[in-house]
């Protein structure tokens, strides 16, 4: 009896989460996949016609948006690493007993709505705003200089909004580095840089790896930053999907675009995992 319970228990434990995923994730996903191959419009209704051209047409028309999204995602992810790593390092090794205070401050913006934060970022970057205004009046920047409605504004907004997703996994990885192992490196003639490069960095790479996945995916498919900060010339694929679905009611096209994006992201992540996610990389970094 006890043995039976032991065998059943794991399944009982995943049952609630499993059901949730089946109903709210798997079913919609299959439904969307089916919609992506339909033809029709809102008035006459949609019909399943196995219309694969939804995919090829989507790539033909919006190829540049896909490229731009992946490009923005890449830059923002790299920028996130550059900003997050030193911050996480400092909190993990230097903040002492104020660690939790700093982590809380890092998460504080998350208590404000994502859209509102992005609009606030727009106010910060606006032509006569608190950043550009003074710089212009001190003649450090030309009068017609602007940041908004540019790719830079979108990428900086994306970086800002998703930074904590990069800091937290890196922080967790650094926090787990055994300080005695670092001492061992010093003991074996490593200077500060060598100890970091050969021991701390490789041991924290799994955190960077997790952070990249957690930022690259949502950043690439984001549409809020591009619509608030980017203006008409810097739209990302997320904006296209949103417009096709909610404005044009082209459900089939929007679904096909979504699946294409998903496939591209999965491909990118797999390639990345193949290249960087293995133990050999950590080993090579330590050598």
């Amino acid at each position: 009896m006890r043995r039976l319970k032991g065998a059943v228990a794991p399944y009982l434990l995943i049952l609630p989460g499993g059901l949730w995923l089946v109903v709210f994730f798997a079913v919609p996903l299959v439904y969307m996949a089916s919609v992506s191959l339909m033809t029709g419009n809102l008035i006459d209704g949609f019909e399943q016609t196995w219309h694969w051209r939804n995919y090829t047409d989507g790539l033909d028309v919006y190829g540049d948006k896909f490229v731009r999204s992946l490009w923005y995602g890449l830059i923002a992810t790299v920028a996130c690493i550059a900003l997050a790593y030193p911050a996480a390092y400092w909190i993990a090794f230097r903040a002492g007993r104020h660690k939790s205070t700093w982590l809380f401050m890092l998460l504080l913006p998350f208590f404000v709505s994502f859209v509102l934060r992005t609009i606030a970022w727009k106010l910060v970057l606006t032509d006569q705003g608190p950043v550009l205004g003074p710089l212009k009046s001190w003649h450090l920047l030309p009068k017609d200089f602007h940041v908004l409605d540019s790719g830079f504004a979108v990428v900086s907004g994306l970086t800002y909004n998703f930074l904590p997703f990069m800091v937290l996994p890196i922080y967790v990885a650094l926090e787990r580095v055994d300080h005695r192992v670092v001492e061992a490196a010093y003991d074996l003639y490593a200077g500060r840089f060598a100890a970091f490069r050969r021991v701390v960095l490789p041991l924290s790479l799994p955190g960077v790896f997790a952070g990249v996945i957690m930022t690259f995916v949502p950043v690439t498919s984001d549409y809020v930053n591009a619509s608030v900060l980017g203006g008409p010339d810097n739209t990302m694929i997320g904006n296209v999907i949103q417009t096709e679905y909610f404005t044009n009611s082209e459900y089939a096209t929007a679904s096909a675009l979504s699946f294409t994006l998903m496939a591209l992201l999965l491909l990118g992540i797999f390639a990345y995992a193949r290249a960087l996610g293995t133990k050999d990389v950590l080993e090579a970094a330590g050598r």
Binding site: D178, R180, V181, E183, A184, E283, G286, R287
Partner: peptide
């Protein structure tokens, strides 16, 4: 605790 480098 030996403090061996776990990644090497």
């Amino acid at each position: 605790s030996y403090a061996l480098f776990p990644h090497m």
